[in-house]
Write a protein that binds this DNA or RNA. Sequence first.
DNA 1: GCATGCTGGATTGTTAACAATATGGGCAGG
DNA 2: CCTGCCCATATTGTTAACAATCCAGCATGC
Lengths: 241, 241
Amino acid sequence: MTATTERTRDASTAEVKQRIFVATRNAIVGRKLPPGTKLTEDVIADTFGCGRGPVRWALARLGDEGLVTLVPHRGAFVAEPPLDEAKHLFGARRMLEGGIVRCLCGHRPPAGWRPLIACIEAEDRAHAEGDETAALRLSADFHLLMAELTGNPIVTTMLRELVSRTVLAITVHQRQGSSGCRTHEHRRLIALLEAGDVEGAAREMEDHLQALEAGLDLSPQPRSGTGLREVLQAALTMADD
Amino acid sequence: MTATTERTRDASTAEVKQRIFVATRNAIVGRKLPPGTKLTEDVIADTFGCGRGPVRWALARLGDEGLVTLVPHRGAFVAEPPLDEAKHLFGARRMLEGGIVRCLCGHRPPAGWRPLIACIEAEDRAHAEGDETAALRLSADFHLLMAELTGNPIVTTMLRELVSRTVLAITVHQRQGSSGCRTHEHRRLIALLEAGDVEGAAREMEDHLQALEAGLDLSPQPRSGTGLREVLQAALTMADD
DNA sequence: GCATGCTGGATTGTTAACAATATGGGCAGG
DNA sequence: CCTGCCCATATTGTTAACAATCCAGCATGC
C-alpha cells in the first residue's frame, strides 16, 4: 500500500497537485504529522521535486477541508480543532449518518452487509495486534463504507471529509483510554440493519456517535485559546464572509 | 445585504481570491451565467484587475464545490450536472436535511421558528411579483436557514454547497412549469415542527425533496451529454480520485 | 533588570514570463 | 466531395523571480 510515493513517473506533470494533496492528507489522518506542525511550502516543494504552485494548491484544498489552518503571511499548520468544532463535527455526523442508515434500510445494497462485516473483522484483528492507529483507521473505514453502500458518491465525499476531521479532532483531544469505535456497537448496528429495524438502527448509530463524543476530555483545552492574541483575532473574525 | 460587492477598499490585497469566488458563485446560482459558459481566466483577471493567480484559486475552489467543471488544458466551464448527479444531489439532501429536522425537533432554537416564517412570506411575495429567480433563491434560503438554526456551522456549510449545486441542477434540467418549493409544504413542515411531531416533520421534509426531484424532466438530456466527446471523456473519469 | 524599538533573515503573496497543449482552419491526396 | 495531416493561434500549466510581510534576536533607554 501507499505505492503512490514510489510513482515518480513522467505522467506526474498534470497530477502533482493531487499527489501532494493525497499524501499530505494521509499523513495527517494517519497521525504522522501531529497537529500544530508547520507545513513549510519550500520543504514540501523540494520533497516532491516541483515548484511551489502545486503545493499552494494542495494546501488551499486541505484548508477548505479543515485539516490545515491557513494563517495569512504565516503559513499552513496542521489544524488543531477546538472543542467546539469537535462537538459540531460529531453533531453533523449524527445528522448525516442517521440519514445514511435510514437510506440503507430502505433499499439494501446488492452486495449485502458482507463488506461491513469484513471491515469489522479487520478492525478486531488490528485491535488484537495492538495497532491502535490502524484500528482507528479501520473504524473510520467502516463508517465510510456505509456511505459508499448508499451508492451516492456525494454522500461518500461529504462523509469522508467529516471523518477525516473527526479523526484529527480525536487525535488532538486525547482519548484518555477509550479506543475508537467499539466493534460490538458496529456489530449490533448491522444486526439491526439486517432485522429491518429502521428506527432502531438509526438510533443505534446516533448513540454510537454520542458515545464517541463522550470519549473526549472536556477539560479546558490546555493549549492556545486564552493567549490574548487569539482572543483579539477571534474578535475580528466576526465581520467575515 | 450583499454589501460586499461595494467594498472596493484597498484591503482587497489579501482577499481578492475570496471576492472573485463569492462573485462568481453568486453569478452562477443567480442564473447570471448559464451552464456551459466558458470562464476564461484572462477575462476574469481583467475584470477584477488582478493577475491570473487568484482567479485560478477561485476556479479551483468552485470546481471542488461542483459548480464548475475543470477540464485539463481546456479551461473552466459552468457545470451542467447530469441527471445522475441531480438525483444523487437530492438523495444527499434527503439524508442530511432529514437529520437536520430531527435535530431541530430535539432542542428548538432560542429564536423559535419566526425566521423561517419570515422567509416563507418573502418567498410568497416574490412569487406574487412573478420574480421566479428570486423565489427560487428565497426557497433555497429557507432550507439554508433551517441548517443555521441547528447552530452547527459545519452543517450549514455542507448544506450550502448542496443547495447551490441543486439550484444549478434545477436550472439545467428545466422545470417545465413547476415552481421551486411549494410554500405550503414549507408551512406544513413548520406546523409539524411546532407540534413536536419528529417523525412526521422528517417525513414531510423527505417527501418535499422527493416532490422537488420529481419536478425534473426525465427526458434524455437534450443538451450536451450525448455529444460523443462527453461520453468518451466520462468513460475516462472512472479512474479518478 | 525589564520593557521597548529596531534590524536581519526567512517565508509567504503576487506578478510576469516561458513552455506545453488543445483547437480551428487550410491544404494536399484519394 | 470527403478524409487526413499540418500549422497558426489562443489558452492553460508551470516555473522562476520580485515585493511585502512577519518572527527572532539584539541593542538601547528607563
